[in-house]
Design a protein around this nucleic acid. Structure first.
Lengths: 151, 151
DNA sequence: GGTAAGCCTGTACTCCGGTACCGGATGCAA
DNA sequence: TTGCATCCGGTACCGGAGTACAGGCTTACC
């Protein structure tokens, strides 16, 4: 982890190629606060330290774990200075809960779809199959049908 | 299913309230081709047949099953005239496959997150835990690190 | 007839993660 | 020094499903 200000800096295209991202994405991440503003050449071209490539692969790994870019930015900040926000373990646990909830939703949807298939539904609006499950493809509608009073 | 053109038409706000959607959503669905352009009052206000409320609940049910609005529009069309496109059963089966794939993705993510938690990772960038799984939170990166040749 | 609620059209904005395009400047090698 | 690849900043756009707002007109009720 060298910090030599005269080290072997990379240009944006090299960083992008090595990290496997679009060059535009570097500027985007910079705007989003995920990567620091790099040094500049006299002409204004960005000069990145080589660690930036590693940082980008870390960002991509975190994204694959389901974290949003805002969350990744916070996780990076948290790791850099003390721990002003909940740490990685806590956030990973919270994310697991999110993932579980999403899986539960999808499982419910899957069940309903299976019922549609096995019942032999043939139309959304005019299904002729017996015991058509479509009207009950509710999945917690939350509808209370009493909101029609003329004010 | 009355089609009486002088029937008890509803105004957009009434339809929206009965179906539990935002009034703007009606015009949006009309633009998207999900609901037909309704009759108009002499002053230009939309006058919906009561079946529109049912149609909206059908649309919402189909959305809860994971269909996009484009897919819902097609399903409604398919049901109205013959079957020029694959029918509901086939589409439901395809959707089940999509859902299964998504669940598999989430399960992989869940496993990786669990590894992060059990290994006790404490930082994305400087994890000090033994056998840190973060660098391998790969989930099929597909990276071939050989794209750096100076052209 | 007055007044308020509701509706009209058109346009712009939201979230999320980027991507694309533009005209002009820079870097680098031959 | 020339030529070409690359980079710059700024802005606009993608998809998906809506939501919000502005400015004006209609409808309904008293």
């Amino acid at each position: 982890m060298r910090q030599d200000p005269d080290g072997p800096h990379l240009r944006s295209g090299q960083v992008a190629r090595r990290a496997g991202v679009n060059p535009q994405t570097l500027r985007y991440y910079e705007r989003r606060g995920l990567i620091a503003e790099p040094a500049r050449s006299p002409g204004g071209h960005r000069a990145y330290p080589p660690e930036t490539v590693t940082l980008l692969t870390v960002i991509k790994a975190a994204q694959r774990l389901g974290f949003t870019l805002d969350e990744v930015a916070e996780l990076i900040d948290t790791g850099r200075r003390g721990h002003p926000t909940p740490d990685l373990r806590a956030r990973a646990q919270a994310k697991i809960a999110e993932v579980d909830a999403r899986i539960a939703d999808l499982t419910t949807i899957r069940t309903a779809l299976t019922q549609v298939v096995t019942a032999g539904c043939d139309s959304l609006t005019n299904c002729t199959c017996p015991d058509c499950p479509l009207p009950y493809a509710g999945l917690a509608t939350g509808r209370t049908p009493a909101e029609d009073r003329p004010s």
